[in-house]
């Protein structure tokens, strides 16, 4: 496989700041997809929201079905307001869908399942009144985790994102990028088989995003977690995902699914490969119409608003 050389290099770069020993790298992770068990099953999920006025209902998700396999990295892509966050919240049990079922393993989701699912949001949810380490401790208490090794696990998660020297800082003493690194580390620290990430890097600059994306690829290859990752960045999606699901403009449906055959961890060289730009361009072609439609709908809503007022 041509990738093995880059794979090795990337490991060499990354692992000297990671915890290193004991974590096996999963080879050819994308090959897994077909025969791994289903980790998350979304079956005919529909979500309606009541609008501000009666009769002004919003159909956010329309009959979405999706299977995500254990160890898979799935990216959700779609125009703004198409229901990506809504879908993620439904999978995590934070929203109750109007109809349809979500299963995690064999269990039907009826509320938050913190032992199975960790979230990483766009905005840091670190509490500003606790230090980084205290935040980790509180999360583990929230999760009702019995493990007494939380401190070691917290430190090793922080080390894996290069933030171990900031364990006793308050979040306000850190930059947005640092906070988001720690947010990511906490998602890993929570030690759940599934992580749901809602635009975790959206608030960051392009360069930081790329570095964090690389780190993430390495980290996840090591832990074999199942990830659902929402992003607006095509490059990020191609670089990280095993599979990319493109959604339509609201009401959100699944428009297309693309597979990226490339083992994790991925090196930055992958971004230079011709295949990378091919997939990226394909994605853009699929998305363009949907985004046009969203913008048109927004204009329409605005014009209606003018008439109303």
């Amino acid at each position: 496989m041509p990738m093995s050389a880059t794979q090795q290099r990337s490991q060499g770069q990354q692992f000297n700041r990671g915890r290193g020993a004991g974590d096996a790298v999963m080879d050819g992770k994308s090959k897994l997809a077909a025969d791994a068990p289903v980790a998350i099953a979304v079956e005919h999920v529909t979500q309606r929201f009541d609008g501000r006025r009666p009769g002004q209902q919003v159909l956010a998700l329309d009959d979405v079905s999706l299977e995500i396999r254990a160890g898979e990295f799935l990216c959700l892509l779609g125009p703004s307001g198409c229901g990506k966050s809504t879908l993620l919240n439904i999978i995590g049990g934070l929203n109750r869908q109007t109809s349809g079922t979500v299963r995690i393993g064999d269990t039907v989701v009826r509320g938050p399942t913190p032992s199975q699912v960790a979230f990483v949001f766009q905005e840091s949810t670190l509490f500003p009144w606790y230090t980084v380490l205290e935040n980790f401790k509180v999360s583990s208490d929230f999760q009702r985790s019995q493990a007494s090794t939380w401190n070691d696990r917290a430190m090793s998660a922080l080390r894996s994102v290069g933030m171990e020297n900031f364990a006793n800082h308050y979040p306000n003493q850190l930059s947005i990028g640092m906070k988001q690194r720690i947010n990511l580390a906490r998602g890993i620290f929570l030690d759940t088989p599934i992580i749901l990430m809602d635009e975790p890097f959206a608030a960051l600059d392009e360069q930081t995003r790329m570095v964090l994306g690389e780190d993430l690829s390495v980290l996840l290859a090591r832990t074999g977690k199942t990830i659902v990752f929402v992003t607006h960045s095509l490059a990020e999606a191609v670089f990280l995902a095993d599979r990319i699901v493109v959604m339509t403009a609201r009401p959100g449906r699944i428009k297309a699914t693309l597979t990226v055959e490339e083992p994790h961890p991925r090196s930055p060289d992958f971004m230079l490969a011709p295949r990378f730009s091919e997939i990226r361009n394909e994605l853009f072609a699929i998305l363009r119409d949907e985004i046009r439609q969203t913008v048109a709908a927004m204009r329409e809503a605005r014009d209606e608003g003018v008439v109303d007022g």
Binding site: A118, F119, F127, D141, F142
Partner: peptide, 23 residues
């Protein structure tokens, strides 16, 4: 955001009050 995050991590009502609302 903090309430949302606490709920996602499985905080009970008491924990939410103790660790989010009070501080």
């Amino acid at each position: 955001t903090f309430l949302h995050g606490a709920r996602a991590m499985g905080a009970s009502r008491f924990q939410t009050i103790r660790h989010v609302i009070f501080p």
